[in-house]
């Protein structure tokens, strides 16, 4: 067996693949954040709480309505997205003219309220959620034993990221969205309902978080704090990728997943810190992020 820096090759490949899988979650979450920031200029601190809501709605659908995983993949983002729609209309839309900080404070407060309500109702230890039967089991790749579900997560995340990118960069709707962020009054003058478009964008970003939540439910503890353990890393991803850059957040998400995975092999104690070390280096050398445009 060959070794790389004293680590057996197969083990290293396994860890690289795991890093990619974790990166898939980072990519999906930071994608939603990037879309919301890019078009609304809101730093959505409630993203982690909405991710958690996605997982909880999947659990509720199963336990209160008998609706399984596959339908939850569709329904949970719709339900949580509708909740996001209400949030945007009633609260967030009032802040567009104010400083960024107000949006940050509001969404941070919302995250605390949402998490607190769930903790009050469902406790802190979490809810059981099983891997759907079609995706149970594992495949032997030779160098590692890959659970089928993890494979599915990577594929699903890649498809979602690609679809979102295509929607925003290659369709007429995406073109209008991008135009509205550049100059909203002008786009409105052409007869486009900009406020409605902004509302739907927020709902769409929220739905992405909820979808990631459903994907996470079978492998992570479904508990009210599950989002807050992810969100710090995800913000780092968005900052490294360049605030608002979609392609940047996706590539950075996967890339950081791999860096984190490698750190877990060579020096696991630093695996929670390495993301922020990278962030500091990037900010020192490229303040706008790897893919961001300098202001």
């Amino acid at each position: 067996m060959f070794t790389i820096f004293g680590i057996p090759g197969p083990l290293l490949f396994g860890q690289l693949l795991l890093g990619l899988i974790n990166g898939a979650f980072y990519a999906m979450l930071s994608l939603g954040l990037a879309v919301i920031f890019g078009l609304l200029n809101i730093i959505n601190f409630a993203h982690g709480a909405l991710f958690m809501m996605g997982a909880f709605v999947a659990w509720m659908l199963l336990n209160y309505a008998g609706i399984g995983y596959w339908w939850a993949l569709l329904l949970a983002p719709l339900i949580v997205g509708a909740f996001g729609l209400v949030l945007e209309r009633t609260l967030i839309s009032r802040l567009y003219k104010l400083d960024h900080l107000y949006g940050l404070l509001l969404t941070f407060g919302l995250a605390l309220v949402i998490e607190g309500l769930f903790r009050n109702e469902y406790g802190s230890s979490g809810m059981p959620y099983q891997i759907p039967s079609a995706l149970q089991g594992a495949t032997n790749l030779g160098f590692m034993f890959l659970p089928n579900y993890r494979g599915w997560v990577v594929v699903a995340a890649l498809v979602v990221c690609l679809a979102t990118w295509l929607l925003i960069e290659k369709t007429k709707l995406g073109a209008m969205l991008r135009a509205a962020t550049e100059n909203a009054p002008l786009v409105q003058a052409f007869g486009v309902n900009v406020p409605r478009m902004v509302t739907l964008t927020y709902a769409g970003g929220v739905a992405l978080a909820a979808l990631a939540g459903v994907l996470a439910a079978p492998i992570y503890s479904v508990n009210p704090n599950m989002g807050s353990s992810f969100i710090n890393t995800v913000f780092a991803v968005v900052v490294i990728g360049g605030m608002g850059s979609i392609i940047g957040s996706v590539l950075t998400g996967f890339g950081l997943g791999i860096i984190e995975g490698l750190t877990k092999v060579f020096y696991p104690e630093a695996s929670a810190t390495v993301v922020f070390v990278v962030m500091a280096i990037v900010l020192l050398t490229r303040p706008a992020g790897l893919f961001g445009k300098a202001a």
Partner: peptide, 21 residues
């Protein structure tokens, strides 16, 4: 053994793989 950072770790699969190995 694998020592992981606390708090802030959600994915333990790397360590499980090491244990298996």
């Amino acid at each position: 053994h694998s020592v992981y950072p606390f708090p802030g770790t959600t994915d333990f699969s790397s360590f499980l793989l090491a244990a298996q190995a």
